Simulated scan of single mutants.
Amino acid sequence: MAREVQARAPEGWEIVALGRDAADFTNPLATLAALKRARPEAVINAVAYTAVDRAEEDEALAQQVNGATPGLLAAECAAMGVPFVHLSTDYVFAGSGVAPYAPADATAPQNAYGRSKLAGEEAVRAAGGPHVILRTSWVFSSHGANFVKTMLRLGAERDRLTIVADQIGGPTPARAIAAACLRIAERLYKDAGQSGTYHFSGIPEVSWAEFAREIFAQAGISCEVVDIPTSDYPTPAQRPLNSRLDCRATETVFGIARPDWRVGLAEVLDDLKERQR
């Protein structure tokens, strides 16, 4: 995400991207010291422990990275009067029903990862400074490990894949999230009254199986996708069946429309092709 933020920063902005060597969220005091040295005018926190299944056995670490350290940083930003933009997830919800979750809907995370992200949200709010918590879902990019890159690898290796078809959500390009965070940070810098919790995810909403089919279609990969229910693909962490997010407040307040993830997918595939040349 840091790469995407740097690539989309408006002209004249200086982006200080702190890597794990400078801001290790398992070492909160060192991370806090790095924040103070940077003396920012706004902070975007895109750091997260995202190993959803591993978090079931390592919840303490997930809580530190996703909960405690963001809360400490948000408190320092509040003391400095600096806006804090914090990324969160649809996993804070129960994932039931079919209606899109609104920002004010009751939370009920069903796994350790979701609990740790909810703890982070609560800590950021409790800090009392200008902040936006931006919940998103099904993030993909040309960097790091994600569903798109996994499908490209498996699709090239196999003729047939079974993919879950009863989990529904909005795939979201990381570059769109980065652009949204930058716009929100700029707005918060000018008007802290827009603080709160918002949602941002791609359209149209699809299943993982439908997402995989579009990946293969755009990439020109011949691989059959067979729909299966979540019950046929057990994992240590329970996944939400409903990851739909109501993003209307984000568009109303910040003028940020939901991105078409199919366009974002084409851009990611182009990026990956460029790297192979």
Rank of each mutant, 00 (worst) to 15 (best):
G12K: 09
D24I: 10
A30I: 13
A34C: 08
I44E: 10
I44F: 04
N45A: 12
A46H: 00
A46I: 11
V47H: 04
V47D: 03
A48W: 03
T50E: 02
E57H: 15
V65N: 07
N66S: 04
A74K: 01
E76A: 11
G81E: 04
V82R: 01
L87R: 01
S88M: 10
Y91D: 00
A94E: 14
S96N: 11
S96T: 15
A102W: 09
D105W: 15
R115A: 02
G120W: 04
E122W: 15
E122P: 10
V124F: 09
R125D: 08
R125V: 14
A126P: 13
A127N: 08
G128Q: 02
P130N: 14
V132M: 00
L134P: 02
L134E: 12
W138F: 06
S142F: 12
N146D: 01
V148K: 14
M151I: 11
M151R: 07
M151T: 05
A156F: 11
D159Q: 09
G169L: 10
A174T: 12
L182T: 03
E186M: 06
L188V: 08
Y189A: 14
Y189V: 14
K190G: 15
K190N: 00
D191R: 07
T197C: 03
Y198S: 06
H199N: 00
S201F: 07
I203H: 13
I203A: 14
P204T: 05
R213T: 10
A217R: 15
G220Q: 06
C223Q: 12
E224T: 14
V226N: 09
Y233C: 09
P234F: 03
P236W: 15
Q238I: 08
R239G: 02
R239T: 09
N242S: 03
S243A: 15
C247T: 04
V253E: 12
V253F: 04
F254R: 02
G255S: 07
G255H: 10
R258T: 07
R258D: 11
D260V: 05
W261I: 05
V263D: 10
G264Q: 07
E267L: 10
D270F: 05
L272M: 12
K273Y: 09
K273I: 10
Q276F: 02
